[in-house]
Simulated assay, not measured.
Amino acid sequence: MLREIRPAIVLLLVLTAITGLAYPLAMTAIAGALFPAQAQGSLLEKDGKVIGSALIGQEFRDNRYFHGRLSATVAPDPNDPTKTVPAPYNAANSGGSNLGPTSKALADRLREDVDKLKAENPNAAVPVDLVTTSASGLDPDISPEAAQFQVPRVARARNMPEDQVKQIVTANTEGRLFGLIGEPRVNVLALNLSLDRAAAR
């Protein structure tokens, strides 16, 4: 019986070593050598200090900054662990709100957000990605239209010419991958860092 079991055990150990150790270590080493920034989490720094990742959104409330896409992620309530509280861009609990088109709570929130944004910029249509959440709740990007919509508010708050702020948005707009895949987008954290650098100059 041992003669029949031994090849299976040897094969299990060999495949575990190959697929569980050798292959992941080799891929990690190759990724680290070819794409060091991405392999380390696409981290962004300001004054030598890591302030976030280009892959995960952050909440910006100050009018001096561009705001990202809304996040519906939650975290356990510190006062009652059986409940949850809003925790925007919580990478430990990625997910959407699961509110559907017939939800009154969603309709009320959308109406309030649209009204607030129309008051901020009455001369432009409100881009849909400024009032809807992404499926992951972690989206770091907004559309170029959503960024341009916010230009007047940011320019006013920073006392900068709108044209200068528009140029910063354009410089931070990424096109489709290979000109075909995905949509044009603006990384909000990278955009706000560029804005701070321009203001400092």
Rank of each mutant, 00 (worst) to 15 (best):
M1P: 08
R6A: 14
A8T: 03
V10H: 00
V10L: 12
L11I: 01
L12N: 05
L13C: 10
V14G: 00
V14I: 12
V14P: 00
A17N: 02
I18L: 15
A22V: 15
P24W: 08
L25F: 12
A26F: 13
A26S: 15
A26G: 14
A26K: 05
T28M: 13
T28V: 12
T28Y: 11
A29V: 09
A29L: 14
I30G: 00
A33T: 12
L34H: 03
F35A: 13
F35G: 01
F35C: 02
P36F: 08
P36E: 10
P36R: 09
A37N: 12
Q38S: 14
Q38L: 04
Q38D: 13
Q40D: 14
Q40C: 00
G48C: 10
G48Q: 09
V50C: 06
I51G: 04
A54P: 00
L55T: 06
G57D: 04
E59V: 07
R61D: 15
D62N: 13
N63L: 12
N63Q: 13
H67I: 07
R69T: 07
A72P: 01
T73L: 11
V74W: 10
V74N: 11
D77Y: 10
P78M: 09
N79A: 15
P81E: 08
P86C: 05
P86E: 08
A87N: 13
Y89L: 05
Y89Q: 01
Y89A: 01
Y89C: 02
N90P: 09
A91Y: 04
A91N: 07
A92E: 15
A92R: 13
A92L: 13
A92S: 14
N93H: 14
N93D: 11
G95A: 13
S97V: 04
N98R: 13
G100T: 10
A105P: 05
A107Y: 03
A107N: 11
D113I: 00
V114K: 13
L117A: 06
A119I: 04
E120L: 15
P122H: 07
P122L: 09
N123P: 01
N123S: 15
A125W: 05
V126W: 00
P127A: 08
V128F: 09
D129P: 04
T132D: 10
S136E: 08
S136Q: 06
G137K: 11
P140Y: 03
P140V: 03
P144Q: 07
P144W: 08
A146R: 02
A146H: 02
A147C: 10
Q150S: 11
Q150T: 09
V154E: 06
V154S: 05
V154L: 10
A155E: 07
A155Q: 03
A155C: 05
A155K: 07
R156N: 09
R158L: 15
M160P: 01
E162W: 02
T170W: 02
T170Q: 14
A171G: 03
N172M: 04
N172Y: 05
T173N: 08
E174K: 13
G175N: 05
G175M: 02
R176E: 08
L177K: 12
F178G: 00
F178Q: 00
L180A: 06
R185Y: 00
V188Q: 02
A190E: 14
N192Y: 04
L193M: 08
D196M: 12
A198N: 10
